[in-house]
Structures are given as C-alpha cells and as structure tokens.
Amino acid sequence: MTTTTIASADKQPSEYGALAVTIHWVIFFAVIALFASMNYAQGLDKADPLRSTMYNWHKAIGTCVLGLAVLRVLWIRIHGAPELVPSPRITEVIARISHGLLYLLLIALPATGVGMTLFSGRGIDLLGIPPLFEANKAVAGALHAAHGPLFLATVIVVFIHIVGALWHQYGRHDATLGRMVPWLRGK
C-alpha cells in the first residue's frame, strides 16, 4: 500500500485541476470585490450606515481570500503545479518570482486586514468571528500602516501576472493561459 505524502507526491501534474482553477478565479473576483467595496465605502459619508455594511463585507471577503490563498498554497505543496511552458530563462525567472510574490501577498494583505480588525478589539461580524484580542492600538496601527503598501504591491504583481498571461497567449501563442482558462486549452 502506497501512502501519498508531500515527499512522495513529486509527480507534477500536466495541467491545473478543476479545484485549483476554481480557487484561482474565486480569488481573482474576490480581490476585485475587495477593491470595489473599499473604494465605494471610502466615498460614503461616515454617518451613512451603508459605509459600515461595505466595511463588514470587505472584512468578510478578505478573510475568505486569506483562507483560499492558504488552501491554494497547501494544495500546490501537496499536489504540485505543472512545469512552466518552456520559455527564455529570464521569462521563467520572472514567472517564478511573480508567482511567489503573488502567493505571499495574497496571504499577507488579508492577514494584515484581519489582524487590524482583531487587534482593534472587533470581530469579523459577517463570518461570526468574535473579537479575539483586547484592543491594541499600536499593533492595529502597524497592521493598518502595512495594509496600504501591501495592496499597492499586490496591484503591481497582479498587473505583471496578467500582462505575462496575455503575452503568453497573444505574443508567444503557447498553452500557458489555457492552464487557468479551460476553454482555451488546445487552442
């Protein structure tokens, strides 16, 4: 009887499976929702109850993104990821660095948001997560200060990721984008 462990699962899949593709796109659309909800909420008057509702949705979606990003990283560690489509060495280096940064940022950004909320003495109401810590303004402030720059870094890395995927599809005409867009497979 063979047991599959991280050490024995060194076979790399030839393409991403349905779960990996689904998690990728759910995170993508959730990040768009996070950006939109925050921009909308910040444009509202502080006394408007919709502002608080939008912030609550932002916190809940961000918490879900954190969980999904951790799940995606664990999934890749256990099941592996397809090898990169053969490309010039510099392209492969950029792809590996940008993917690593993207995973790091998709964990760090929502982690700072969740931490900021919890260290402000509040919970994530829409998910039923109660306040877990006493309010600590110093920690909450440090996490708040990190959240904005991490968001900007995430936008930059996502932009690089999208440009790279489009370059592979329309410049190199290879199978890279088809790995995450199933209807492009085989084209």
Rank of each mutant, 00 (worst) to 15 (best):
W167T: 14
A146K: 00
P82Y: 08
A20Q: 09
R89V: 13
R89E: 13
I32N: 08
R72I: 04
V158R: 05
T91G: 10
G186L: 06
L127H: 04
P110S: 01
T3L: 15
V31W: 08
S87F: 00
K59A: 14
N39L: 14
L101G: 10
D174P: 07
L132T: 02
G186W: 06
C64K: 00
I124H: 02
P131T: 07
V26H: 03
T176F: 01
F159L: 14
C64I: 15
L177R: 02
R51N: 06
L118V: 04
G171I: 05
L50K: 15
G113I: 03
A145S: 12
L101H: 01
V157L: 04
V70Q: 04
L150P: 06
M38A: 12
V65K: 07
P49Y: 05
P149T: 07
G80R: 08
H173A: 10
T91A: 12
I97P: 05
I162Y: 01
I160P: 00
H144S: 13
G80F: 07
H168E: 07
N39I: 10
V65N: 08
C64P: 00
W183E: 06
A36T: 13
T53Y: 10
R185K: 15
A9S: 15
M116Q: 10
A30R: 08
I97Q: 07
Y16L: 09
I78V: 15
A60V: 01
A135S: 12
N39F: 13
A30T: 06
Y103A: 01
T3N: 10
E83N: 10
L166I: 04
G178H: 01
S120C: 05
H58K: 05
P110F: 04
I76K: 14
K59T: 03
L19R: 12
A165G: 07
V26M: 11
A111L: 12
R72V: 05
Y40W: 14
